[in-house]
């Protein structure tokens, strides 16, 4: 199969590669780039474990071809840590409020929360529940995830205020 040239930005770094056209983005990220934060949970777009941020949208990377991400700006959970390597606000809030257990859904959850809080910086509980409904968790029962996202919203807003 003829290889396809792909070029994209992943977590701020330029990436260029030759890939089989049918390669799924999740496999490209995990196996070619060794970015293993995004996980595979269902391969049918239901569970959200593979969620990454592409050009300002939350996308399930298990059901798109790598070629469809040509030229895109991609952020994964690995890209959400602070410049000094410490946990980003959302990551810290998940830890603080016990928003994770086995950790398998967590990269997708946090990546989705990152986008949700940009779409809606002051979400109600209902907004969070609805906005996170594309990501399944089998361990936490969501209560602490909702709490973590709500606290992350407050913390991010406080940061913004302090900066202004």
């Amino acid at each position: 199969m003829a290889k396809q040239h792909v070029k994209m930005t992943v977590n701020g770094k330029e990436v260029e590669a030759l890939a089989d056209p049918r390669t799924l983005l999740i496999h490209f990220l995990r196996e070619d780039l060794k970015i293993t934060g995004p996980h595979i949970g269902c391969e049918t777009s239901h569970c959200g474990a593979c969620t990454v941020d592409i050009d300002g949208k939350s996308v399930k990377s298990c059901t798109m071809f790598v070629g469809q991400a040509h030229g895109a700006d991609i952020t994964t959970v690995e890209g959400l840590v602070n410049a000094d390597g410490s946990l980003g606000v959302i990551q810290e809030m998940f830890r603080e409020h016990h928003g994770l257990q086995c950790g398998y859904c967590t990269p997708g959850m946090i990546t989705r929360a990152h986008r949700l809080l940009q779409e809606n910086p002051t979400p109600t509980e209902e907004d969070i529940r609805f906005g996170m409904a594309g990501n399944l968790c089998r361990c936490t029962g969501y209560q602490n995830i909702v709490k973590a996202v709500a606290h992350a919203a407050d913390a991010l807003n406080a940061q913004k205020e302090a900066a202004e």
Partner: peptide, 9 residues
């Protein structure tokens, strides 16, 4: 959680 929250599981 320090590992899991940054995708380092």
């Amino acid at each position: 959680d320090v590992r899991f929250t940054q995708g380092k599981g």
